[in-house]
Design a protein around this nucleic acid. Structure first.
Ligand SMILES: NC(=O)c1ccc[n+]([C@@H]2O[C@H](COP(=O)([O-])OP(=O)(O)OC[C@H]3O[C@@H](n4cnc5c(N)ncnc54)[C@H](O)[C@@H]3O)[C@@H](O)[C@H]2O)c1
Ligand SMILES: NC(=O)c1ccc[n+]([C@@H]2O[C@H](COP(=O)([O-])OP(=O)(O)OC[C@H]3O[C@@H](n4cnc5c(N)ncnc54)[C@H](O)[C@@H]3O)[C@@H](O)[C@H]2O)c1
Lengths: 204, 204
DNA sequence: TTTTTATTGTGAAATATATAACTATTTTTG
DNA sequence: CAAAAATAGTTATATATTTCACAATAAAAA
């Protein structure tokens, strides 16, 4: 299977292609797309080649063909259901984000331990943690976004795993211990900001 | 200078060490810390070695020494001021996040183009874009978080650059064109979720 | 005190990732 | 129609990153 980094690029090509298509482009060259997403032309071609995506020599790639190939690779013909656990500042922001829906990811429900956060009339329904199993089954959910405080992250992850979740997008700044069949993708915004400061020369 | 990936690890060591210290640890071994943050023991040692951080043969590393070394490297003895541009769902969540302050990053102000979002009584003051230069200068800000819609991202980034910002944490799913002296760190949460789905075997 | 053990520090090897250089093919031009 | 130009596809090379292997050394045990 593709590497994690390569997958990231392919998904960015897809986003870039959607933009280019909106601007009226019907075909792209490797360097056009590369420039759009910040990747060298050679790497664009290599990535496509690795996935068996063909262009036309001297003619570039058909935008629609590329998009449908990528759509197939990433299962974008179907809608993927997702849940958000922890409906605080971050969880609410994510649950209201329109971008997910536009890319066929559907946040079907939120969960929280705090009774004050439970709300059936919110943008999406927010349930107590007891309903986790039920909702996961009903909506055939296998991926969850974890947005609970650091101290609760591991315990909550355990609950998710025990209810059959196999992918966690973890926003808490802590490493989760999970079984091998569960994949965790950590996004640590503090670290992202801190290293930006360091490398942009703000420090010292 | 260190690579971007290495810096990320060092910052995660720091967070892990803070946790371990809270749990009462006074010294750590490379494999203890490695386990805490998900890095091999060898790499932990190499990273420290690369920054001239010394441990004790057979005695591990002193937690306090490590933390103060890392604090020095990342300028954590001073408070770094940050602004958030785009006070929508994501911008507001970030501006209210306590974690930044706990790690000596201070979100001093928010900015928005929408008059309805302007508010001096919010958790942080929210200004119109006209005040950008003034606030950046007053608080000596060099790093900004960009949380405006995709279509406005490039234009807004240009404004930031023209006011002297040299680091941008970009949350919009688009590549920004900036001069060489400006560093952009892109965090694309959609791509992070999509590739989690792909690699966790949800797709197909 | 000597031996054993545990752990750091680091050079060598392996692996992964990206770039460069080249070939093949198609289109365009003269 | 032949030559030139442009671009995909691919192989070779370079660079970056991680792991392996082990010497050095300090602490603990005998
Ligand atoms: N807000 C941000 O901008 C931001 C930035 C970077 C990282 N993060 C991380 O994202 C996570 C969420 O941050 P936040 O600012 O939204 O926090 P928050 O405190 O606003 O919200 C956390 C929510 O989780 C709920 N919760 C607590 N324990 C729970 C449990 N055991 N089970 C289910 N729900 C539980 C709380 O009731 C609350 O609603 C944290 O780990 C934080 O470190 C947030
Ligand atoms: N909300 C999320 O969970 C989420 C997730 C992933 C990515 N993002 C990205 O983060 C960015 C912000 O998302 P959001 O959900 O907060 O959007 P939002 O629409 O809720 O907020 C955007 C804010 O930016 C302001 N704005 C618009 N144009 C501006 C301009 N030219 N200058 C200054 N301010 C301007 C708007 O008034 C609004 O307040 C988007 O690029 C989005 O794609 C958001």
């Amino acid at each position: 299977m593709a590497s994690f980094t390569q997958t990231k690029r392919l998904l960015r090509y897809r986003m870039g292609l959607i933009r280019l298509k909106k601007m009226g482009l019907e075909k792209v060259f490797s360097y056009t797309l590369g420039k759009e997403v910040g990747v060298s032309a050679e790497l664009v071609r290599k990535d496509f080649s690795a996935f068996g995506i063909k262009g036309h020599r001297r003619g570039g790639y058909e935008v629609d063909d590329l998009l449908s190939s990528l759509e197939k690779i990433f299962g974008k013909d179907r809608i993927q259901n997702v849940i958000v656990v922890g409906m605080g500042n971050m969880g609410r922001a994510l649950s209201m984000y329109k971008g997910f829906r536009e890319h066929n990811m559907n946040v079907v429900a939120g969960f929280d331990i705090d009774p004050a956060k439970l709300n059936k009339k919110f943008h999406i329904p927010v349930y107590s943690m007891e309903s986790l199993g039920e909702v996961i089954e009903a909506f055939n959910v296998s991926v969850a976004v974890l947005a609970v405080p650091e101290v609760a992250a591991q315990e909550t992850a355990n609950q998710l795993v025990s209810h059959g979740i196999s992918g966690i997008l973890n926003l808490a700044p802590v490493l989760l211990k999970t079984p091998d069949h569960v994949l965790v993708n950590n996004v640590n915004l503090m670290v992202e900001l801190e290293r930006l400061m360091y490398h942009s020369g703000v420090i010292q």
